[in-house]
Amino acid sequence: MIGPGSDSARRRALGEFLRSVRARVSPQAAGLPAGARRRTPGLRREEVAQLAGISVTWYTWIEQGRDVSVSAAVWSRLAGVLQMSRAERHYLFELAEATDPEHGRETLEQLPEGLQLCVDSITVPAYILDRSWNVLCRNSLMLELFSGWPDRDSQPNLLRFMFQDEAARALVEDWEARAQRVVAEFRAETASFAEEPEVSALIDSLLETSPVFAHWWTRQTVVEREGGSRAFIHPDKGRVSYRQMTFHLAIRPDCKLVMLLDEAD
């Protein structure tokens, strides 16, 4: 893995990756005429640049590993022109240290097959959140802990539950402290894509409807999402406590699996 401070090595790796992918894309696959026989396979630099709508010089500099500023939109066009797979596209944006504008557009129906079954097989409360903290799937233990939420919500979102549903204040122990932490975690996680329509609409809605969210959002506090003790006051079971663990999914990097482990274990 290319570590912090290795910008030149990262740019070289990015250029080498682009050259490798470019070499495997035929002109016909890119919608270009085959033309005369080529000495090297794949697309030429000028063809990639033309299809992506950028200058040949600029694209050449990218492949050469020079320090040039490239927008996320340009990276997205290059990924499309070079017909990258999802894994390759993710790798490209990781090397480019940019946020893929296509992330977050997947729907629940497009979640990888078997993911719900995996969550169902977990023996503690568990659920999957996308980067807007929409609940994409959950197991029955999570449903029981949250007294029927999120199934009673057509588009369950953990932030909306926390700040717009009165049930959250009764369920979450020390709600005020947790609310402060949740806002700071969400700000940290969404820093690079807070202006995207879905995320910005969620933030605007919470600013309008929740004075507590608005108070902490304007404080600009940022903290990392971390595990730790999570306590709830369940209407039937009384006080229950868990240790929260969060994992990002390799098959959907924009999503995270949250598990609540019984602290008694």
Rank of each mutant, 00 (worst) to 15 (best):
I2N: 01
P4C: 08
G5R: 04
S6R: 13
R11S: 02
R12I: 14
L14H: 00
R19E: 09
V21R: 14
A23Y: 06
V25T: 06
S26F: 00
A30P: 00
P33W: 03
A34T: 13
T40N: 00
T40S: 07
T40L: 08
P41R: 06
G42E: 07
L43C: 04
R44E: 03
R44L: 04
R45Y: 01
E47M: 04
A49T: 01
A49S: 00
L51C: 01
A52F: 03
I54M: 12
V56M: 14
T57D: 12
W58C: 05
T60V: 08
E63R: 01
G65N: 01
R66V: 05
R66H: 06
D67K: 06
S69W: 13
S69F: 13
V70I: 05
V74D: 03
R77D: 03
L78R: 12
L78Y: 11
Q83R: 09
S85V: 04
R89T: 07
L92H: 03
F93L: 05
E94I: 09
A96H: 05
A96S: 01
A98V: 07
D100W: 05
P101C: 08
P101T: 10
R105W: 10
E106L: 15
L108I: 15
L108P: 10
E109V: 12
E113Q: 13
G114N: 06
Q116L: 12
L117N: 14
L117S: 15
L117M: 14
V119W: 08
V119G: 05
D120I: 04
D120S: 02
D120V: 01
I122S: 00
I122N: 02
I122W: 02
V124K: 09
P125C: 06
P125W: 09
V135T: 09
L136V: 06
R138F: 15
R138E: 15
R138N: 15
S140D: 15
S140E: 15
L141C: 04
F146Q: 03
P150L: 07
D151W: 10
D151R: 08
D151P: 02
D153K: 07
Q155D: 13
R160G: 08
R160H: 11
A167Q: 12
A168M: 09
L171M: 06
E173F: 11
E173I: 12
W175I: 06
A177P: 02
A177H: 12
R178E: 14
R178I: 14
A179V: 03
V182H: 08
V183E: 05
V183W: 08
V183A: 04
V183S: 02
A184R: 07
F186P: 01
R187H: 00
F193R: 09
E195V: 13
E198A: 12
I203W: 09
S205F: 08
L206Q: 01
L207N: 05
L207Q: 09
S210M: 04
S210F: 03
A214S: 08
W217N: 01
R230N: 06
A231E: 10
F232Q: 05
F232T: 08
I233E: 10
I233Q: 12
S241F: 12
Y242M: 07
R243D: 10
M245Q: 15
F247E: 14
L249E: 02
A250T: 12
I251E: 14
D254V: 09
K256P: 00
V258F: 05
M259V: 10
L260D: 00
L261Q: 11
L261K: 10
D262H: 06
E263A: 14
A264E: 14
D265W: 11
